[in-house]
Amino acid sequence: MLEITKRLVELLYLAPIGDDHFRGDSQDLGFPHVFGGQVLGQALMAASHTVENRLCHSMHAYFLRPGNQHMPIDYEVQRVRDGRSFAVRRVSACQDGKEILTAIMSFHSLEDGFEHQAVMPDAPDPASLRSEQDWGKLVAPHVPEKLGEIMTRDRPIEIRPVNPVNPLKPEKRPPHKQSWVRALGPLPDDPVLHRCLLTYASDFSFLGTSLNPHGVSFMNKGMQIASLDHAIWFHRDFRMEEWLLYDKDSPSASAGRGFNRGNFFNQQGTLVASTTQEALIRQR
């Protein structure tokens, strides 16, 4: 396993600090606050530690406060229900005695059933695309040094955007985005870890979908953007070191909020997970 990926995996595997209580460190990605995907992934790992022989199939979370990346995060899991097929857990993530995220997750035993799925949309092969870091190197000379370092640094999650927006000169586009994503593997054969990694990755470049029709980016003066909530559904098994197409659209923006939806497909066209997120997209 690559060292940079190993650090992320270690970040997601939380340390137990008591009955159904866990603690995780934070990773400095250069953002002002803790990356939301990290808190989501760690919360899912905390809940998964309290469930046996079942995997998470859905997660609904609210971001309550920005997290401090220089402080550990404590995760408290409440065992809401253990049924014959499903188990439900509630997770609270806290720093300095204050809740920064609350989430509820459902776990399901493997069973057979009806099968159908959406058709995978057309997308260029990931081998034909540049990574976000490659695009960042083109932009870096024109932005402050610290921001340039953030845009070009190595990451455990490789993202190759389709038709990326120039954040310095955003243009109005339809409310749709695509990117190929994968973890730089190889990775252990732990389906819980792969779900936590996809949860982590699902927060990258998601809310920007609702900015597309308005010709603005996070770099526009006066823009205040933040994830408000996040939901994810796991449909089928997958491996995060294999390319997944993240196809995103935004059906609506109003009242300073943008609503976003996403689907993850593997390269064989199988729909493996779906996401939704509402974000604050306020222009002061």
Results as ranks from 00 to 15, higher is better:
residue 159 I to D: 03
residue 177 K to W: 00
residue 169 K to V: 08
residue 162 V to E: 05
residue 155 R to Y: 12
residue 174 P to G: 10
residue 143 V to G: 02
residue 166 N to P: 01
residue 157 I to C: 08
residue 175 P to S: 13
residue 110 L to P: 00
residue 123 A to M: 01
residue 122 D to F: 10
residue 134 D to M: 11
residue 136 G to L: 11
residue 141 P to E: 07
residue 177 K to F: 02
residue 178 Q to I: 01
residue 144 P to D: 14
residue 113 G to R: 03
residue 144 P to K: 07
residue 156 P to H: 07
residue 159 I to A: 13
residue 106 S to I: 00
residue 167 P to G: 09
residue 170 P to M: 10
residue 135 W to N: 06
residue 106 S to R: 00
residue 137 K to W: 11
residue 147 L to M: 07
residue 177 K to V: 05
residue 122 D to A: 12
residue 177 K to G: 07
residue 155 R to V: 08
residue 167 P to I: 15
residue 116 H to F: 12
residue 133 Q to C: 13
residue 112 D to Y: 00
residue 147 L to V: 04
residue 136 G to S: 08
residue 135 W to S: 02
residue 174 P to C: 03
residue 120 M to C: 09
residue 140 A to T: 03
residue 160 R to H: 06
residue 133 Q to R: 13
residue 166 N to L: 02
residue 151 M to V: 03
residue 107 F to P: 06
residue 157 I to F: 09
residue 151 M to E: 00
residue 104 I to F: 04
residue 144 P to R: 08
residue 177 K to M: 13
residue 138 L to E: 15
residue 106 S to M: 04
residue 142 H to K: 03
residue 150 I to N: 05
residue 134 D to A: 13
residue 124 P to C: 11
residue 122 D to Y: 10
residue 127 A to P: 02
residue 111 E to W: 01
residue 145 E to M: 08
residue 124 P to A: 10
residue 110 L to W: 05
residue 175 P to W: 03
residue 148 G to F: 15
residue 154 D to W: 02
residue 130 R to S: 12
residue 130 R to K: 12
residue 120 M to V: 05
residue 160 R to M: 05
residue 157 I to D: 04
residue 134 D to R: 06
residue 146 K to V: 14
residue 137 K to Q: 14
residue 174 P to L: 09
residue 140 A to E: 04
residue 143 V to Q: 03
residue 124 P to L: 08
residue 165 V to C: 10
residue 118 A to M: 13
residue 152 T to C: 02
residue 170 P to V: 09
residue 157 I to Q: 08
residue 176 H to M: 13
residue 127 A to Q: 15
residue 108 H to S: 03
residue 114 F to I: 09
residue 153 R to L: 06
residue 117 Q to G: 03
residue 168 L to F: 03
residue 143 V to M: 00
residue 168 L to K: 11
residue 116 H to L: 06
residue 140 A to Y: 07
residue 149 E to W: 12
residue 121 P to M: 01
residue 111 E to L: 13
residue 142 H to D: 07
residue 166 N to C: 02
residue 111 E to Q: 14
residue 120 M to I: 04
residue 122 D to L: 07
residue 118 A to E: 14
residue 161 P to E: 13
residue 167 P to N: 09
residue 166 N to T: 03
